[in-house]
Simulated assay, not measured.
Amino acid sequence: MSIGNSPEDERPFEDPSEEAPFSIGRALQQARIAAGLTVGDVSTATRVRIVIIHAIEADDFAPCGGDVYARGHIRTLARAVHLDPAPLIERYDATHGGRPAPTPAAPLFEAERIRPERRGPNWTAAMVAAIVAVVGFVGFTAFKGGDDGASKEQVAEGTPSTGKTASPTPKTDKSADKTPEPSDSAIAAAPQDKVTVQVSATDGRSWISAKDHNGRLIFDGFLKQGDSKTFQDSEKINLILGDAGAIDLFVNGKKLNDDFQPGAVERLTYTKGDPQVG
């Protein structure tokens, strides 16, 4: 009876020390889970569709529609989950052929080729200009001579010639009174029986979501820099700030001195007894 090797002995040796290749999707997924966010939360905060987020977390970038859009989605999702997007973009470029090469500048001889040819002086135009200048000078001399004759006749008749022209009466320009704009902290007194929250995008653009105490959506959209929104409810206001660092909050007539970081996603609730984070 011959003794041979079993099929299990012929399997290739696997080194357990080898690390799995760096995965953009796995890094984004782990950062999202660590931040306590669902795919729906990230989609709401970034406006990236849920199906695209799932595809990117599975390292499938085909639904993005091209390398430019894929890089933009990776950068947006990384910021939403508090992750540095630079290593992810470098990894994407390394695995997808890198960034497109810039368009080469046109050769120098092409610019020389389209340069207009120099022409000699246009003597005809110069002669026409000289003739016009002579005619104009003669006409001006004759007109000035007529004015001098009229002045002499006035002196002979005894009419004094002062040689001065009456100065026009100065007009007083009255600028319209302008009503000074109120400062950021000067807002109307809030009613005592309601909770009033004013959201102002002072340092940049941010996505905002606001709901009342029944969970009904009051507002869902972006505020551009300089825009503001005011929300009121009888009991409480629930907020989600997509970029809390760009927002100033006024609760029941008082400005909050928050320390939100740029790009941070914050979930806040305010009631009639605030200002204080609920």
Rank of each mutant, 00 (worst) to 15 (best):
G163P: 14
D93Q: 08
A101W: 00
H54V: 13
L108N: 06
H213F: 10
L256W: 08
G98R: 05
I218L: 10
S185T: 13
G245W: 00
G242T: 07
P104L: 00
D93L: 08
N122G: 10
V39Y: 01
S228C: 06
K211V: 10
A34E: 13
L88H: 03
G273W: 02
D84Q: 08
R32F: 00
A58Q: 11
E90G: 03
S200Q: 07
R32P: 04
V51C: 08
A201M: 03
G215Q: 06
P102T: 01
L217F: 02
V135L: 04
G204S: 08
T141M: 02
G40W: 00
R75W: 06
E181K: 07
I74H: 08
F109N: 10
A125Y: 09
V155L: 15
P102W: 01
D248A: 10
I53N: 03
D93C: 09
Y69R: 15
N122S: 11
I24R: 04
E181H: 00
N5I: 11
I74V: 08
I89Y: 06
A176S: 07
T103N: 02
R119S: 11
D60S: 12
E235Y: 13
T169V: 14
S6Y: 04
S6M: 10
D259Q: 08
N5A: 08
F260L: 07
K255T: 15
Q276R: 11
V199G: 00
E110A: 10
G72V: 01
A133V: 10
G146I: 12
I187D: 04
E90Q: 11
A246N: 06
L217H: 01
K254I: 14
P104H: 01
F61T: 06
R26F: 06
T179A: 01
I33F: 03
A201H: 07
E57H: 00
I33A: 09
A111I: 13
T44M: 00
G278T: 11
G97Q: 07
T76H: 00
H213N: 15
S175T: 11
F250V: 15
D93A: 09
D243M: 03
I56D: 10
V128E: 05
A201T: 04
R118D: 12
